[in-house]
Every structure is written in C-alpha cells, then in structure tokens.
Design a protein around this nucleic acid. Structure first.
Length: 353
DNA sequence: CATACGTGGAT
DNA sequence: TATCCAAGTAT
C-alpha cells in the first residue's frame, strides 16, 4: 500500500472511531465482531433499503428468531408475513433458504468470501460485507455509498454502471488489511452522513484533503450516472370479496412481483402488461376507488373492485382463505394491498355509519 | 450487459 | 408534485 492509501484508510478509521453510528447490529469500533447471524440478517435487510426502515424489522426478526437455527425452522408463510412492507420479497425467500442451508451445514456461516457468495441471496456486496464485518477478513466492499465516495475521491468521470470495474479497483487500493469490518462500515457511514448524494458536507469530511472532486469544487456531480428510463404507467384491478367480516385472500406465485406474499386476488397486472385476467367471482363488481402505487420500474393505478353479493360458492374450488377483517394487519399484506385494504375498510366504515 | 424486483423518506 | 435514492441480487 502506498502512503496516500494509508492516509485515506487511517484518516477514515480515526473518523469512524469518533463518529460511528450506533446501530443495533453493530459492535463498537475496534471491538470483536458481532454475531454473524445478526450481521448477515442486517445486511440482507439493508439491501436497497434505508437504515430507518430496517430497524424495526431487525428487532422483530431477532426477537422472534434469535439464531439461524431458529429461523431455519420457521414456517415460510410466517417469514414472508414478517417481511411484509419491507419490499424486495425475493430477499425473504432467499433469507429462509440461506438459513436452512447454514443450519444444515452445522449452523455456522462460512467465513470465507467465496463460501458466503455461494449462499442464496448473497451477492458480491453482501458476501464481502459479511466476510469483513463478521469475520474480520479483508474484502473489497462496494455498495452505493462506496461508489459515491470513491468516484469523488478519484474523480471517476465514466458513468455508472460502466465505471464499476474502475471504482472497484480504486476501492481495493484504499482497503486496509486490518480492521476490515470497521473500514467497510466507515465508508458506508461516511457516504450516509457526510459524502451524501446532494449537498455533501465536505467541510466535515476526514478525506477532503485527498478528494479530487472536492478540489475541483464539483463533488456533487459524482458519481456520474447513465440517464434513467421513464417509468411506464400501468393499471390493474384487485378484488375485494367480503363475507361475515372476513375478506378473501390468496397467496401469490413464488416468483415475480410480490412473489410468495399473501394478497388480494387481482387481474394479473405486471410490470409488462395491464391486467386482463379473470375475477374470482362472476360479479357484479362495484367500483371501490383507486390506489396509486409506485414500483421501481413502473407506476400502478390499482382499481379496487368490490363484490357486495352473497354467491360465494365458486370460491370453494379456489386456493385462498377467509381472513378476519379485525386482524387484517396481521395478514402480511405487502404495502400495495395493505393500501387497498385500507381503502376498502374506509369505504365500509362510511357505509355503516 | 440490461431488466425485474418495493418501499418510504428527502428534496 | 415529481424525482431521486437506499448497505443489491438473480437471471
């Protein structure tokens, strides 16, 4: 390592010793690594998800399933329901698959980066992060924070995603061989609190004297990114069928949008197409309002169709369940359908008043 | 390499 | 209000 790389990692670790965020899945700077189970769980939850959103879910999961063996023994539906609202539901399916793989191998996570990378739901980032944070191994940990910090430090003008390889080389060059976990978390804390996407606080940055973008006065324009595509507008229908203060819910297919989650029946809308599928009953259907919901790659207007009849016999041949309205909050509905349920119940409240 | 995959908070 | 963005992964 050359002198300037040492300057960067040393200055960053000194800053981290004084300013590390106190987070439930962390150990104090310089102290022994935390339980790999908790590191892994937090890292999966934090994929594309904010610290604020993760905190309550992390508490819920570790309280309910304190060890990887406990999670491995859990019912899949209960894990999916516990994940409801956090998004990117493939993570929950992979989480359980990973827990079971680890439990089947004696209950210990692999400590090597390649061993971790082979587990379900662990990609390049998460494998490196767990290796560094839970096992103290030197690993090049590159997430969106690191991309931003490094692209500024080294004035990387090539746009993402093409710049990934160059950014990785730079990150490798400044990664120290000791305090691997602290270094990785320090880079992420710096990116989250100082080297922010907009209005970076360069005056408070421990790396400002080494930062090429800071010297140029244009830190804010990094990382350069390729232009995004417009999000298409889609529409679909969801069906509200009520009987004896219960609503008819289904389980979505294991893959695809909201895969594996409990849901209202719908007409098959997806990222590719508006809905065209059949209703669970012949109707008649009343208009129950519209839920607007933004996904990563499209915007959806979900039209709620409400059945007020009493011919439910055709449902007996279908997969699904009557869920009591008074415990609808425990059904584990993803946010889109939780919004739809809220809409239906609000309208119902008005009717009965 | 591009696309599918959620959600809520900040600006 | 609209857009951006967050500790990415799988295909």
């Amino acid at each position: 390592m050359d002198a300037s790389s040492q300057d960067v990692s040393g200055a960053l670790l000194d800053w981290y010793d004084a300013h590390a965020r106190d987070l439930p899945w962390r150990s104090l700077p310089g102290s022994p690594p935390p339980d790999p189970y908790r590191v892994w769980l937090s890292e999966v939850m934090l994929q594309q998800t904010t610290v604020a959103a993760v905190k309550s879910y992390f508490a819920k999961f570790t309280d309910r399933w304190p060890t990887v063996e406990a999670l491995a023994a859990a019912d899949e539906g209960e894990v999916m329901a516990a994940w409801a609202g956090l998004g990117y539901y493939a993570r929950a399916r992979n989480l359980l698959a990973c827990a079971r793989a680890v439990a089947d191998s004696g209950g210990k996570f692999p400590s090597s980066e390649p061993g971790l990378r082979a587990l379900p739901g662990l990609g390049a980032y998460t494998a490196a992060a767990v290796a560094a944070i839970a096992f103290g191994q030197r690993a090049v940990v590159v997430d969106a924070n690191v991309e931003r910090v490094v692209s500024r430090l080294f004035f990387v003008t090539e746009p993402l995603p093409g710049a990934r390889a160059a950014i990785r080389r730079h990150a490798d060059a400044i990664t120290p061989s000791t305090r691997a976990g602290d270094f990785a978390q320090a880079m992420m804390d710096l990116g989250a609190t100082i080297c922010t996407p907009r209005a970076p606080r360069c005056l408070l940055c421990p790396l400002s004297s080494s930062c090429a973008a800071r010297a140029s006065g244009e830190a804010e324009r990094f990382p350069v990114k390729a232009p995004k595509k417009a999000r298409p507008q889609r529409s679909g229908r969801a069906f509200w069928v009520e009987r004896n203060d219960a609503v008819w819910l289904v389980r979505r297919p294991g893959k695809g949008m909201l895969g594996g989650m409990r849901a209202l029946p719908d007409d098959g809308w997806s990222a590719r197409t508006d809905g065209e599928g059949a209703a669970p009953l012949s109707g008649p259907w009343d208009a129950g309002g519209v839920v607007a919901h933004g996904f990563t790659h499209f915007q959806l207007n979900l039209h709620l169709a409400v059945y007020r009849g009493d011919e439910w016999s055709s449902l007996a041949a279908q997969e699904g369940e009557w869920w009591p309205l008074k415990t609808i909050g425990d059904a584990g509905l993803p946010t889109l359908f939780a919004k739809a349920a809220r809409l239906a119940l609000a309208a119902r409240g008005k009717d009965s008043r």
